[in-house]
Design a binder for these strands. Sequence first.
DNA 1: TATTGTTATACTCTATAACTATA
DNA 2: TATAGTTATAGAGTATAACAATA
Lengths: 160, 160
Amino acid sequence: MDASGTMSADLSSDCERLAADALDTDILGTSLDFAMHGAMAVLRRDLLAQLGAVRPVVFNLLALVGANPGILQTQLADALLLDRGSAASLVKKLQQWRWVEHRVREADRRCKGLYLSVTGARTLRHLKSQFQKHTARFHSRFTPDEHRQLLEFLQRIARQ
Amino acid sequence: MDASGTMSADLSSDCERLAADALDTDILGTSLDFAMHGAMAVLRRDLLAQLGAVRPVVFNLLALVGANPGILQTQLADALLLDRGSAASLVKKLQQWRWVEHRVREADRRCKGLYLSVTGARTLRHLKSQFQKHTARFHSRFTPDEHRQLLEFLQRIARQ
DNA sequence: TATTGTTATACTCTATAACTATA
DNA sequence: TATAGTTATAGAGTATAACAATA
């Protein structure tokens, strides 16, 4: 349609856009992948703005170390859905920032238990309060039942 | 816990991992962001394996051009949630592969309408059948009602 | 001045693979 | 031989910004 609402028979001689809602989204309209992509994009943009310079994966890692003092890198990798190399790079960065410390386990010197530093613990508390603001904005779009249901749906997809 | 099921008072002298299901997931357990991340990872891995060398975004782009002959790059960018630069790079690649062609609109020579080539149309048909196999694997985890509900939930998040 | 498209560049995220040290 | 961790590299995906052509 052009601006006056009539069909344009020849697009190549009419630079009006097809109206956005006149676009045929084809498979995209019912694609789980694409709907997920869109939801992720919005969620992520909001979370990034809320956490500032801290990446979401760093927040997740801090939360896990905070809740599981002595956790190993390989366990972090598993829980965060990362490979060992990516987990190692992250941990190295967090150690340079002095947010995380490690102690080699004497019983098996290959293993390093990870712990939050005092600074790391303080940072985590701050990030959690920021995360709560982010979470609240999206929780408010769902009833408690809907939210539980959505989480269950997502976990059903993630289950291998 | 160690292998015998007793608590280890001193982790630093015990290299047993905390059992995976004994990990405290803290906020990750109820985090929409993390659940979404996990679901996306599984969906995406499956889709990549099914589409072979073709990236999901390329499939989405082909589907849109196929369903909307003459569509503009900026419209593609909007629909695919990309910026114009990324859309331009994609379109350029697809033109080099001879899957997509363009015609400059004489009424406004800034605009290029995009169309599938014969090869592109054939490729799209193949990719759609591959995509269906992927889709079927995940649809089977949901009743039709649940699937509709999940899509609606995701769109509710994506709505700005 | 606004819009379409182009190009170069850079950053995030993650994977792969080769490596060391320890068991 | 297997496991924990390290490091270098590469690729996908996307954003930013400066640019040209057209309106």
